[in-house]
Every structure is written in C-alpha cells, then in structure tokens.
Design a protein around this nucleic acid. Structure first.
Length: 498
RNA sequence: GGCGCGAUAGCAAAGCGGUUAUGCAGAGGACUGCAAAUCCUUCCAGGGCGGUUCGACUCCGCCUCGCGCCUCCA
C-alpha cells in the first residue's frame, strides 16, 4: 500500500485514488522569465519520480504541470530586455524543456499556460464575486500621491480581491489562522483592499501593460487563480494529488484552495505534496537571495544523470544542500552502480515465476524496460525497493537497495541480477545508458582525444608484452594525470574518467 | 512575534524501541608485474538535560542550535 505524506493532514496517509486505478495530479511549474535553477530541477525531478512510481504501481496517471507565462516579473523583464512578452516566455519555455529533458524528466500530459485560460479565470472570479467571496476593490486608488495610476476612472480598470475572512477554511493547508497572520503582519496594504490579507484575483492594467478585457476593465489575472482554473479544466473540480515546492504552501496553495473550494463548495485536492528546498551554504536557494545555480550552469560541469541521482539520493521532503563536493559524491556513487553493470552485462529480465498470485498488485505485470521483461517484485531486492518507494517515495532507501543489489551482482556475476538492477534503476529514471558511455563521459580534460587514448593504451599493451613495465607505468601515469584511469581486465585494458 | 521542520559517524544520507542501513573517505587482507575494479574484514554515530521502558539513536517533555513560511519564490 502506497503511503503519501499529505501536507493537508501533516501526516503519512494511505493513498486511495478517487477512481480506482487512476491518478490525477497537478504540479505548479515555472514562471518563465529566466533560466531554471537547481530548485526548479528538484521539483521537476521529484514529481517525475512520483509519476514514474505511480505508473510502476499500475496507475493510469494524468499529470498536469502548468506554466505561468504572465505576471509582474515577466512584464518587468520583457520591458528591461525591450522584448515582446511572448518572445521572452517562449525562449525560457524552450530552455526549460531542454533542461528537463536533460535531467530525464518525462513530459507531463498537459502543460497549460496561464494566458490560454484567461476566460476561464474571469468566469471563476465572477463566480467568486457572485458568491460573496470576492469584491471589486474600487477604481480610485487610495491616497493618490503622484502615482502613475490612470486618473480617469472611465479608462481605468479595477482590481478584484478575494475576501479571505469570508472563506471559513482559510489557513487549513498551511496551519495558519487569520489571527496569526495578522499578528505577523507584513503584507502591504494595497489600494482598495478591505483586509490586508485579501489577495488579488484580477489586477487592473496600467498603460502599456498587457491586458485582457474583463467585466472589471482591462487587466490581467492574479497569480493564484490560474491554477484553480487550469486544474478545474484539465483534472476536474476535485482531484487526487497537487504538488509543488514547499514555498508555495502559503500563500499560493492556500489561496488556490480558497478559490476552488469557494467556487465549488467542496474539497479541491485530496493529497498535497510539497518538496523541500535546495540550499546553498545552509540557506534556501532562491532568486531573491541571488544564491542560485542554473541547471545549465551545473550541467556544464556534471553529467545530468549525476544531478538527477544527487536529487533522488535525498528524501524529497528533506533539505538538499548543493555543493560541488556533494555532486562529486553523487558521481562516485553512481559510478559504482554503473561499474557493476559494466562488469556484468545485464541480461533481459525473465518473467517472474507463474502463479505468484499472492502478489496482489499489478506491479508484477509491469514491463521492466522497453518490453524486455518484467520486474519480479518478489525478488528480495525488488521487494525492498518497492517497500521503500511505497513509504512516501523514500528514494534514499530505494537507492540503498540498489547498492545492495549491485554488491550481489559483483559477487555473483549474475547477468539476471544485473538486469534487475538496471530495471529498478529505470523506475527512477537512472542507469539506462551504456555503462561505458557513462564511465567515459564527462568533462573533456587533459586534451586527450579518443584516438590519443586508444593509441596510448595500445602502446602500453605493447610495453607490457615486452615486459617494459617502466614504460607501461609511465603511460598509466600520463593518462591518470589527465583524469583517465586504466583497468587491466581479462578482456583487455579498458579506461574510464575519474 | 506567530506557525512549522530539523539536529545521525570524517562527508553525505536512511530506517528502526533490542539484530550490519547505504555511498564516499580511512585501516587491514585477497586479487594485480604495478594499478584499477571487485571481494572479505574493520574503525568512526544519532546536539544537551530529564522522563517512559527490562531496554531508546528510535517514544514523551524541556533546553540549545540551525532552517523555513508568515512578501515574489520550486
């Protein structure tokens, strides 16, 4: 039985989908005005892992990950660049797709963009107004002081705000009460808000800003409403899982609940999943702190699979400290797994013994990889892996099972066990490459070409044959100084990068 | 100030009320012309103070320290 830590319950719960065999999941994606950093990489990889595991469990998964392609920061950045907004967002969506693909992230079933859902958002805002949960904040800005606001009310649109105290459940996701929030008041009192905690559903446009027509004049949607509208449209008024970074818990997801449940009058999401932050020097990696590393920066130095492995080696809810040392560490660990697969070429999986009906799940029917066979989940290593994954996606423990299996592979030289290792790695989106490619890949240091290396190895073999060990060792040293390690095996000399 | 999370060996990171987590690093051994890889053995743990218990790293309380959210943020 799969257990999921549900933020709403602040506890692990048995996962029971609304519709047997089906999972509908929504994850908050990126605001596309800059390159993705490692924090974004974590969301991408973590929820990709979750989708893969749900599928491995036999669920039919519908996965939605949205793209925020209109907001204040996008408008600002486009203006700075002197670039049309859709050019800017198009550029960074393409970059995000590249980064995600490099990290082995499978495309979601839907990637809706906020700008494609403005009519739905307007309808939802209207419904909230009709229900008395939202109000038009008025045209005239309070305390006008030479602002750039439009002075003629006939041309200006109005803001629409959500009236937080009219929604009874406000705070249930983040565990905050309205009183607590007010006690720690840090919210700017915007023009026209009845309560400082009220948030904007519709933002009136200033001259020159992109705008959509609405019953409240030209403007654009507030941030939170897009997720309510897109989730509704693609997954229904109520769905199984909603995910995102822990920083979205409040206010974004709290506000999303207020909107969706406000409109529909019933529960919006059954399981909320929030992943922990990536940190640098023990601090959250974030745009505002400026301490971020973009995915592409990191990929210049590290193999993308190492980065994926690095992310999966920590539990998704734990903080993940980023540093070169940690990446190097991850690389070394992944090298051990690939080394086992290099030394013992995996054979295709054989079907599990027939009649193992005690296994109730559909897992045993799952294809291992490319139709090459099936994982036998009754195998002790596979069972340990599954138990870990079923316990709130405990990838560190699942990966530990992989290492145990790798030791077994090394000990027994059993191609079937190697096949299982590769198949289990595949469930996490790992270990699918030719091991030699992985081991020889990476930074091209030392200026040695493939031909150079092959030639030096041939020279060394000749020297060895002539029992000229001094020359053989000199060549070994020359290559090792360039980060290339030689291994003399019964099958001949092979090399890999350090 | 309010709310929440965490503290594990040299580094990283898990589970678990009593039995080796795991990876890297270290030590010894096997193997090797030398190495590497691999295997075997092994050193190094659970912030502090109390409590519960036959027994706590694991449960409870307090303290200290760190982090996060309360403002845009994955």
């Amino acid at each position: 039985m799969l257990k999921i830590h549900n933020t709403l319950a602040r506890a692990k719960q048995d996962f029971v989908p609304m519709e047997p065999g089906k999972v509908r999941m929504y994850v908050c994606g990126m605001t596309v005005y800059d390159y993705c950093h490692l924090g974004h990489a974590r969301v991408l990889v973590v929820f990709d892992m979750i989708v893969r595991w749900l599928k491995a469990e036999g669920f039919d998964v519908t996965y939605v990950r949205n793209i925020t392609d209109i907001d204040d920061k996008i408008i600002k950045r486009a203006a700075e660049n002197g670039e049309p907004i859709d050019a800017l967002t198009g550029r960074f969506i393409a970059a995000m797709d590249q980064d995600a693909a490099a990290l082995g992230v499978v495309k979601p079933d839907f990637e809706p963009r906020a700008t494609q859902y403005v009519p739905q958002m307007i309808a939802m805002i209207q419904a909230l107004i009709d229900k008395g949960l939202a109000y038009v904040a008025g045209k005239a800005p309070k305390g006008v002081s030479g602002s750039s606001r439009i002075e003629n009310p006939d041309e200006a649109g109005s803001d629409v705000c959500y009236s937080v105290h009219d929604f009874a459940g406000y705070g249930k996701l983040s565990g905050k009460s309205l009183d607590d929030l007010r006690a720690g008041e840090r919210v700017e009192v915007a023009d026209g808000k009845r309560d400082p905690l009220d948030f904007v559903l519709w933002k009136s446009a200033k001259p020159g800003e992109p705008a959509w027509d609405s019953p409240w004049g030209p403007g654009r949607p507030g941030w939170h409403i897009e997720c309510s509208a897109m989730g509704d449209d693609l997954l229904g008024e109520r769905f199984d899982i909603h995910g995102g970074g822990a920083d979205l818990q409040f206010p974004h997801h709290e506000n999303e609940i207020a909107q969706s449940e406000g409109v529909h009058g019933h529960q919006h999401v059954n399981y909320w999943i929030h992943n922990g932050f990536v940190r640098v020097d023990n601090e959250k990696m974030s745009k505002s702190l400026g301490n971020f590393f973009t995915i592409r920066e990191v990929l210049e130095k590290y193999d993308p699979e190492v980065v994926r492995f690095f992310i999966l080696r920590a539990h998704y809810r734990s903080p993940l400290n980023y540093s070169d040392q940690h990446l190097d560490d991850a690389k070394g660990a992944l090298t051990r797994l690939y080394t086992a697969l290099k030394n013992v070429p995996p054979s295709p999986l054989t079907p599990p013994p027939p009649g193992g009906e005690g296994d109730q799940s559909s897992l045993s029917r799952r294809r291992g990889r490319d139709g090459e066979g099936e994982i036998d989940w009754n195998n002790p290593f596979a069972a340990a892996f599954k138990a870990a994954m079923d316990d709130d996606f405990a990838t560190p423990e699942a990966i530990a099972a992989l290492f145990d299996l790798a030791s077994e592979v090394n000990r027994t030289n059993d191609p079937e066990r190697a096949g299982l290792l590769r198949a289990l790695g595949g469930v996490l989106g790992l270990l699918q490459r030719d091991p030699v490619d992985f081991l020889q890949g990476g930074a091209e240091e030392g200026g040695f070409t493939l031909e150079n290396i092959e030639q030096l190895i041939a020279d060394r073999v000749a020297a060895k044959k002539a029992k000229n060990y001094a020359e053989a060792d000199r060549i070994r040293k020359e290559l090792s100084d360039a980060g290339i390690i030689l291994e003399d095996t019964p099958q001949g000399t092979v090399w890999r990068r350090a």
